[in-house]
Structure formats: structure tokens, C-alpha cells
Computed example of a mutant assay.
Amino acid sequence: MLSQLLTSIIDDIHGDTITLRELLERCGREGMLMVCAIACLPFLIPVSIPGVSTVFGAAIVLLAFALFLDRLPWLPQRILDKGMDANKLKPVLHKGVNIVGKLERWLQSRMPALTTAAMQRFNSAVLVFGGLLLMAPLGLIPFSNTVPAVGILLLTVGMMQRDGIFVLLGYLGHMLTVVYFGVLAYLAWMGGTFVLS
């Protein structure tokens, strides 16, 4: 089960800090999608941990780009070795795993055309886009990290479990994120126009 595997990876990390390098070492080459899934977990609940969205968002972008190119990922040492507070992050990761556990009962092998090797590049490109949305400097705005994280998680889980329905839901999550960010930009523009007038 995916949730059990995620739990075992998180439980295997000890110490006061967590680094992306530790997560990659535990997941291995075949676990790039697994790391992307783990990187979404902190944003599924309304708890803000400063600096995490930048590190995890950048990791998703670079890992997804590696998947797009079908090669091993290259990650800057600054991102790999940036320590994050384990005492704050691990409980949030576990709560995110609980959400994944609830999704698992709906996972099946459906619409295989969306999970073929030919679609891998397109799905990876969408994942890169999702990582960029997650990195947007809007952390203080409600759901600005949660909405893209849900889209990334659904797409990632769909790719891992070969479930085309979840892949489609991931696309929908990304579209909703663009709409949400567009609404925020419009409101900011209208607010600025009102103040200046």
C-alpha cells in the first residue's frame, strides 16, 4: 500500500532536521515520483512551515524535469542539504499520509492511455508546472499552497498507480490552481486600482 510505504520512509528519518537528500536516498532512483508525493504532504493541511514550499516546490520541478528527460535528476546542493525542522515537518507529513490512505480505496487501473510511456513526458511536464505553482510566493494567502499540492498529489499518485482517472483529476487540480491564482491577481489589481484612484 502506498500510504504504508510513505509512512515507512518518513519513520526511517531520525534527528532534529530533515533534508531532501535523506528522502532521495531512502526512495532511490525509482522513487522520484514518491519524493514528489512526499513533498506535497505538508501542504494538504492548513499549517505553514516557512521555507518548505520553496525547497519542496523546487525539488518537484527538478525531479519532474528529470522524468520528462528520462534521466537521473540533478539537484543543487543548497536544495539537497537544506535542513528543515523534523519536529514540525514529520507530524505534518504523517497527517498528509492519512489523506493518501483515504484516497487509496479509490485507486484502480483505469484509462491506461493516460499512463503509458508516451504520456509520461506530458504528465511530467504538467508536474513541472505544478511545482512552479507551488513555489509561487503566496504562502500567506489561504490555500495558495494547498490547491497546487492537491493537483500534484493526484497526478503523482495516478502516475505511480497507473490510474488515468487520478491523472485527469491532477490535470483538473492544476487548472483550478491557475483559475484561483488568476482570481487572486485580478483582486490584487482591482485593489491597487482602487487605492491609486
Rank of each mutant, 00 (worst) to 15 (best):
M1P: 15
M1L: 14
L2E: 09
L5K: 15
L6G: 11
L6N: 12
T7W: 09
S8V: 13
I10F: 08
D11K: 15
H14R: 15
G15S: 11
D16H: 15
T19H: 00
L20N: 13
R21I: 10
E25A: 14
R26P: 03
R29D: 15
G31T: 11
M34Y: 13
C36S: 15
I38Q: 11
C40E: 09
C40M: 10
L41F: 08
L41H: 10
L41M: 08
P42E: 02
L44C: 06
L44V: 05
I45V: 14
P46N: 11
S48E: 15
I49R: 13
P50E: 10
P50M: 09
G51P: 11
G51W: 12
V52R: 04
T54F: 14
V55R: 05
V55G: 09
V55M: 11
F56C: 07
F56R: 04
A58I: 12
A59M: 06
A59D: 05
I60Y: 01
V61P: 04
L62W: 07
L62T: 07
A66N: 02
L69E: 14
L69K: 15
R71I: 13
R71V: 14
R71G: 04
L72F: 10
P73S: 03
P76D: 06
R78K: 13
I79N: 05
L80M: 14
K82I: 09
D85L: 08
L89T: 04
V92P: 10
H94W: 04
H94I: 12
G96D: 10
V97E: 07
V97A: 06
I99T: 10
V100G: 08
V100R: 05
G101N: 10
L103F: 15
E104G: 08
R105S: 15
R105F: 12
W106P: 03
L107K: 02
L107G: 00
L107C: 09
Q108E: 11
S109M: 11
P112I: 09
L114A: 12
T115P: 04
T115E: 05
T116A: 03
A117N: 12
M119Q: 09
M119I: 02
Q120L: 12
Q120A: 14
R121S: 12
N123V: 03
S124W: 04
S124H: 05
V128Y: 00
F129E: 01
L134F: 09
L134V: 03
L134W: 09
A136R: 04
A136E: 04
P137E: 02
L140Q: 07
I141D: 03
F143C: 00
S144L: 01
T146G: 00
V147C: 00
V147P: 00
V147N: 00
V147G: 01
P148E: 04
G151I: 02
G151S: 01
L153I: 02
T156V: 07
V157W: 01
G158M: 00
M159S: 09
M159F: 03
M160V: 06
M160S: 01
R162F: 04
D163R: 01
G164V: 06
I165S: 00
F166M: 07
V167A: 02
V167S: 00
G170M: 03
M175A: 13
L176Y: 05
V178Q: 00
V179T: 08
Y180G: 04
V183I: 13
A185P: 05
Y186V: 14
L187K: 10
L187P: 02
W189M: 11
M190T: 14
M190K: 14
T193C: 08
F194S: 12
F194Y: 12
L196I: 14
